[in-house]
Design a protein around this nucleic acid. Sequence first.
DNA 1: CTATTAAACGATAATAATTATCGTTTGTCA
DNA 2: TGACAAACGATAATTATTATCGTTTAATAG
Lengths: 144, 144
Amino acid sequence: MSAQEIKEFRELCERAGLAATHQRQVIYEVLKNMHGHPSPEEVYARVKRRIPSISLATVYKNLHLFIESGVFREVSLHHGSLRVEINHKPHHHLVCTSCKSISDIDAEALGLATQYGKLPGGFLAQRFAVDVLGLCADCQKKAD
Amino acid sequence: MSAQEIKEFRELCERAGLAATHQRQVIYEVLKNMHGHPSPEEVYARVKRRIPSISLATVYKNLHLFIESGVFREVSLHHGSLRVEINHKPHHHLVCTSCKSISDIDAEALGLATQYGKLPGGFLAQRFAVDVLGLCADCQKKAD
DNA sequence: CTATTAAACGATAATAATTATCGTTTGTCA
DNA sequence: TGACAAACGATAATTATTATCGTTTAATAG
């Protein structure tokens, strides 16, 4: 990692109130060099090549800390467990980033102009599932 | 459940090649009368009021069968486990419903006109996360 | 530069959600 | 109505994640 990147890492740790540990730095570097949507196990495997004694729990803890402090994001803001969609009407989801609640909004009430068919890259678009991230009415009140 | 609804249930079972069992019918009825995004445990609790001997495993199996046969949907098509978002650019996700792969597409390449601010209902929209559901190029080839 | 102390670490036990197994029961259909 | 596959219930097993706790390390005051 370049001196510039090390500085960047130390600054983000300071901003988040975290100690700049060796493990944390390697996890950060590894993430920076990965692509897509790695799982904790995948990150762990990569970090292990540089720190064989690293613990999986340390990887989990640091991933959560990076996510909490906004250094990285989580792919999904949905419940991590199975949920059944009861509403059969075309609709999207209002996801409150504060209380994690998810409610429905009719597709037409949201009124996004979506296009189906082939996208550049060859992906065939058949349906759009939109998560509107923000604050529900209740959490806005509490934030006052 | 009305005679009409019983008929509907038996027809969907036949279409899906499933036996019309008592447990399956009650799970179906319960789902029809729920709202939002119930968890398997919540469904189980409701079904248990009518069939005290029901097994949680039976609820899980039937939820999956209903989802596979398209009778109900799953709320989230994401990985059920933690994934880190590496891409810091505004982007959305192409979710292949066949192989479950998720890839990124730049927000501007997708070009959805999104509006921030208050929605009817009071929800404050801050960010849009779009899942484009469909078939990736590879799975389209295989489907030929 | 060293002592103090909170933060972080590693190992691993515990938990939660889900799935697999398997012997018994039930729906389907001849 | 009998045969057989499908489904059921009980529960063991698995997977992902989190909690615990004794040890190590980074931050920082002197």
